[in-house]
Design a protein around this nucleic acid. Sequence first.
DNA 1: TTCATAGTTCGACCATAGCCGAAACATTGA
DNA 2: TCAATGTTTCGGCTATGGTCGAACTATGAA
Lengths: 229, 229
Amino acid sequence: MKDGPDISRIGQLIGDPARANILSALMSGKALTATELAQEAGVTPQTTSGHLAKLADGGLVRIRKQGRHRYYALTDDEVASVLESLMHLAAMKGHLRTRTGPRDPALRRARVCYDHLAGDKGIQLYDALIKRGHLIETGDDLSLSAEGETFFSNFGIELSSLSTGRRPMCRQCLDWSERRTHLAGMLGKAVLDEIYLRGWAKREPNSRIVAFSQSGEKQFEDILIAGTT
Amino acid sequence: MKDGPDISRIGQLIGDPARANILSALMSGKALTATELAQEAGVTPQTTSGHLAKLADGGLVRIRKQGRHRYYALTDDEVASVLESLMHLAAMKGHLRTRTGPRDPALRRARVCYDHLAGDKGIQLYDALIKRGHLIETGDDLSLSAEGETFFSNFGIELSSLSTGRRPMCRQCLDWSERRTHLAGMLGKAVLDEIYLRGWAKREPNSRIVAFSQSGEKQFEDILIAGTT
DNA sequence: TTCATAGTTCGACCATAGCCGAAACATTGA
DNA sequence: TCAATGTTTCGGCTATGGTCGAACTATGAA
């Protein structure tokens, strides 16, 4: 039998922050590509590739090839269930030290997640939109209300141009640094583009950090509070 | 909230083989001293001390002082339950690579566990005794049959002298390298003493390795097969 | 008090493995 | 076929952390 410390193999897999972030992202049940996971985990695609190989080797994730993408998902719901119980345990006992991910704290404040805004700022945005009733959560789906349409139109986003293609307009996306959802989808991308366009923030080169200027951050927050442009 | 990758903290704790062995040993529900855990994990007491501190810091084990000993146990049954599910998961997915413990392979063959024989040889002994009906398993308890008494008497063990004190005569003990039980308790100690006395094996200095001589190993196995001395 | 033993802390060594840059590989679309 | 993009492999750097020897502390026994 000899399954002695095989438990440590699993622990080791979960023990790395980058891999834990990957697994957390996959806890949504959705299958994600390696690149998306790389963004979410805060490491480069090469590194993610290695992590995913190890996770697959350990039987925690499974790969599904589809076109030129390779989608990764948790192997089955038993894996998800174990992760769930681990998270619960961590939440119970874990009021000791907050771990930082593999990258610096600026990433927690604001960063790109694929092509939309994540981190603290991303969550502020999402929460405000929900609170104002601009976005409606129905289960795991997300839809835009009439007020929301007005708001985004005034903000400078041409909604009609977003409805092309099969990518959904709004989508929830799990945030690893905060374990909350932020806004993804075409709309999420459009918002971030507009933020760049207005000069409120710019992308730090060679990094996922979104650096807000002082005035940009203020205007961003003003809009969230006012709920209107 | 920010319990982001706190899951990785737990994983990291479980991810080290020595700590996994410690946790496995504690899965019996019994509280064990640091020294006993060191023996079972295959590392020195200093190292074990550090591991236990980390496990306690992570909320996985709790300490109970009693006299000059400090007994360690799992914090609660939720921890045990999570470990249990992890073990199950590992058993399902884990037919890929067998991990070695922190020490060399000779430890797997034969070693002292506290004061009795563990490792491959310890399991051979235990299995043979059960198979011959010399030992009777009743649930988690272990008792000696009439044939067993004869067998051990002939082997040179004075059973009457073992029944003193509050230490049980026979006890099951979990073996980390094989994840099986071997014989502990006063009887376990007596057997190992007799093995030394007969010159079948001797204790490697500064190590837990029990080194059998070639003829000693043969005689040991002969006895197991014959079921009599 | 003095001794012995359980347990911890400290310091240094070393191996594992995460990380990224560069480049190779694969797959699709033109 | 070529070009573009997603993905993996390789090589080298670095840091985290597991390990042990030795010294220190604490507790109980003589």
